[in-house]
Design a protein around this nucleic acid. Structure first.
Lengths: 247, 247
DNA sequence: CGTAGCATTGACGTCTGTCAAATTCTGTGG
DNA sequence: CCACAGAATTTGACAGACGTCAATGCTACG
């Protein structure tokens, strides 16, 4: 078990790693001050549930570090991941009292939370924040729709390639690697989480990863470390083609 | 061919059928005036394409009457519907110049369009509008995520039942039928459009509709008219259960 | 060194897709 | 009003992709 994550709280907004990407991205000093008054940090350990679907939510907030998932579950236990929350992503919905999805930390996680009621007021009063939130919500909507194509129309192999491409692209952005050619990253998800994202079974995920490895599309260091020798090849396997500029 | 739909333009905002549900829902007289200056109506015939993905968009707007679909297409022709646009739904994304999806009128369609550039300015200046847009976008995001569960985890039979339930619910709302028991409505979609929505083939859609009919879950008047004798039964077939209050 | 969780692999079944044909519906023209 | 053409829909036969069930392997941690 790692150290209590609470001991690693990030510094004030100045040095915050998501200062310029989160909902507060375009705030000026006064507006930050305003947010500061209603904010607090919370930490979660890998595997912990942040919120249960149906629970009362009295905060919204941003992922500061770590990764969380948004999932829906049917009565019989079938589950579908409907969102992957990375640093700077926003959690919760102003104007709604109950969580619509389960939010689960897949890695150790730090969140910058805002008390919900005051935050709703801030949104009313601060166009720069509500407009940023609109922009982020539109981006999420686009991502959700892109994912609908993956879920509805792609083969298992294409689904895996699509997921790897998304994660690879994000890793490349985060570490500002060259845009092309070789990329490598760690998978933040178990095979089961991947299957929940992709609408597949865990076994099919495993088989397709093996197949992509066999065909030289990817190489595996450990089970979780992926090397992509040719990113364009991966995109082609995803059925994407020429979307190099996207996202 | 019907009469030129342009001849049936709705009246001024006062009597507009979507006045209290669209992006302008919460506007006061002055704000409506503002919007009025940049708005114009456009009509499309059933089957016409409103916008092609990748095209330059110089307007955004609301569906006033009729139904349109939002679809994505892969190079090899596989398509996935990612949204169903009903009256009051918003089309287009402020701040983006190219359409991300094909928008196609499935019935005769009337749209209330706003020139994009001026509309973006209005959003900046009118919190009531941008906040309404945020709210609508959050609703769409929820709908997209609900649909991800359908696409990723439901069986063909459950998918069909889910789609019928959604359409039935909306029809019930529109015509303010009693909330329970018997419902009936016309399908606004061809079998092919349904298959694009559900991530199935047209043949599977047809077979599952026949099966639901055989099992007494639905009755068919014409091919397009559906009678649902027991709405709760339909929901159960959709795998939803107890979501009676939802949406 | 042993246990627990994660991952891989195999054998087999089934749901859904594919290909093809028949049937019903809709609108048009005679 | 009826005949006809084209589209939409239904139905059947068959195949393949993915799921299910089960065994085995790997890694980490106590």
């Amino acid at each position: 078990m790692p150290l209590d994550p609470m001991t690693e709280i990030p510094p004030e907004c100045d040095g915050c790693p998501i200062r310029h990407r989160a909902v507060c991205a375009r705030c000026n000093a006064a507006e930050l001050e305003e947010l500061d008054r209603i904010k607090y940090y919370r930490s979660f350990q890998a595997g912990q549930t942040v919120i249960w679907s149906g629970d009362r939510m009295d905060f919204v907030g941003s992922v500061v570090s770590g990764i969380a998932t948004l999932t829906q579950t049917m009565e019989d236990g079938r589950t579908q991941m409907v969102g992957l929350l990375l640093p700077s992503d926003f959690v919760g919905r102003p104007g709604r009292n109950e969580a619509a999805y389960d939010v689960i930390a897949t890695t150790d996680l730090v969140m910058c939370c805002f008390r919900k009621r005051p935050f709703e007021q801030v949104i009313q009063d601060t166009p720069r924040i509500s407009q940023r939130l609109l922009e982020m919500t539109l981006d999420e909507l686009d991502a959700a729709r892109e994912w609908m194509l993956v879920l509805g129309r792609k083969t298992a192999r294409e689904k895996i390639a699509s997921l790897l491409a998304i994660i690879a692209r994000r890793s490349a952005l985060a570490s500002s690697t060259g845009p092309f050619g070789m990329v490598d990253f760690d998978l933040p998800l178990t095979r089961e989480a991947m299957s929940d994202y992709l609408g597949l079974t865990l076994e099919t995920v495993s088989r397709q990863i093996s197949a992509l490895k066999r065909d030289g599309v990817i190489e595996l260091g450990s089970k979780r470390h992926v090397v992509v020798p040719d990113f364009a090849r991966l995109l082609a396997e995803a059925g994407d083609d020429s979307e190099v500029l996207a996202h």
